[in-house]
Every structure is written in structure tokens, then in C-alpha cells.
Amino acid sequence: MPNSRSNKARSGRLRLRALQVLVLVLLVVIWHVLTSPTLLPPIYFAEANQAAFFFGEPVKVFARLWQWFVSGEIYEHLWVTLVETLLAFLIGTVSGVVIGLWLALSPTASAVLDPYIKAVNAMPRVILAPIFFVWFGLGIASKVALGVTLVFFIVFFNVYQGVREVSPVVLANARMLGASPRQLLRHVYVPSAMSWVFASLHNSVGLAFVGAVVGEYLGSAKGVGYLIHQAEGFFDMNTVVAGIVLLTAFALLLDWAVGLAERRLMVWQPRSIETERT
């Protein structure tokens, strides 16, 4: 009875979603109760409205988000931040894949460069932001550069590892079947490294946002990071939190897109097998 089975699976999924939403609602309610100046007597703070000062109030946060979108003033900033993030993500990923493949396949180059790669990776790279401002100005380019330095290494190390982990038997088999070095790259190394790349992309989506927002925070005239920075200047915690919520939502959206691409491209991967529960 495939129908009842799929119904069961669907109702299970619905229940899970309901529980997930419940957690969110619960958190927002707790937040609201603890920060509202009128609902509870101050537990920790000396004055009733101090909790709201430090943590913002959910109702005002959502009002701020609503006002941003209704008035349209957010689109300009959101656009800048998203462009920075996507550019950092794309440039960082592509360069990470290309250089990762190159170094993994040429032992000499990787042996020579090894200490330098380790050094640059260990360096707290957000520190580079001021240098990038000098080089690329206060516009989009400096934020993209910062994001690229963060994304690149994640992808690079995963590709490097992925190529190293290629099954030697699969490789030998492809060679016996007549694959040229170029064909080995295209038909063995790259597909084998892809599962590692996708694992790294989930991490690097967040870091691309970090690069963009931190860059905006340190110096810019546009972007969600800039809005957050400005609001902080006025101790406007509601706007700060609204900015954080907005960034989180878009980071999730981008992560979901990566997951979608992954499921599309990685159909060959075995998934854990689930037995039917009755």
C-alpha cells in the first residue's frame, strides 16, 4: 500500500516541522517575556527597561524588519551585501578548486608551498581587512577580497584532501581503460573531489557572509553590516538584532541552494538506508 506509506512519511515530516516551529515560537516568547518592561518585574536588572536595552524586543525587531521592507530602504543595503557574499563565494570556491587540484596533483609544488599555505591559513585573516581597504577602497571590492580569503582556504583544503583520497584502485582501473592524464583529471579526480567540495561549501557560505559583513562593519557606506554598525552607534539594539535575523535568513537560503545543487549533482552517492517503520 504505497499510499498509506507515503501518507505516514508525510505526517512524520509534518510533525517534525511543527516541532521545529514550536522551538522557534517558544524562544521568541521567552525572549519577549524576559525583555518586555511591563510583563515581569525586573529579575536581574535594576530598571524595568534595561533588559530591552541589552537584548532588544522581538516585537520591535519584527516591526523594524517590516518597516525596512515596506519602506524599501533595506533593498539597497541587502543587495550590496548579497553581491559581496556571492562574489566572495564564487571567486573563493573556483580559485580553491583550481589551486587545490593543481597542488594535489603536483607533489613538488605542494611540498615547496606547504609551509606558506599553513602559515596563511593559520593567520587570523580578518586582520587583512584594513589592508584590503587601502588596496581596494571602501566599496564592494575590499569586502569581496576579505570573503575570498575566508572561503578559499576551506574549499582549497577540502579539494586537496579529496584528491588525495581518490581510490587508487579506481585510478588504476581508469588508467588501464586508457584514460589520459587530462581524462583522469576530468573523470576521476574532479568527481571524486566533488563530495568534499560540497561538504566545504556548506561551511563557506557562512564565511562568505562573515567576510562581507565584517568588511562593511569596519568601513563602508552601504550594506547590512553598515546598518548594524550605525545602529550600534545609537545603541539601537532592535535594529542590530533585525540585521542579524536578516543575515541569518539569507545565509540559510544560500545554504539551502547549495544543498539543492548537491542533491542534484551527487545522485551517485549512497545514502543511509532507512527501513520502513510500521
Binding site: 581510490s167 584502485v169 579506481v170 582501473n173 588501464m176 586508457g178 568527481p191 551517485w268
Partner: peptide, 20 residues
Amino acid sequence: GINTRAGYMFQTEALMPWRN
């Protein structure tokens, strides 16, 4: 180099898992 006149069947899994 590689023996192009020969086919090789390996003991362990040698199929490319990303190809059907």
C-alpha cells in the same frame, strides 16, 4: 608504460561510483 593490450579486473571495487 601502461599495457594497452591488456584488460585488468581488480580484486576490490574499481568502478567509478559517480558513473552509472
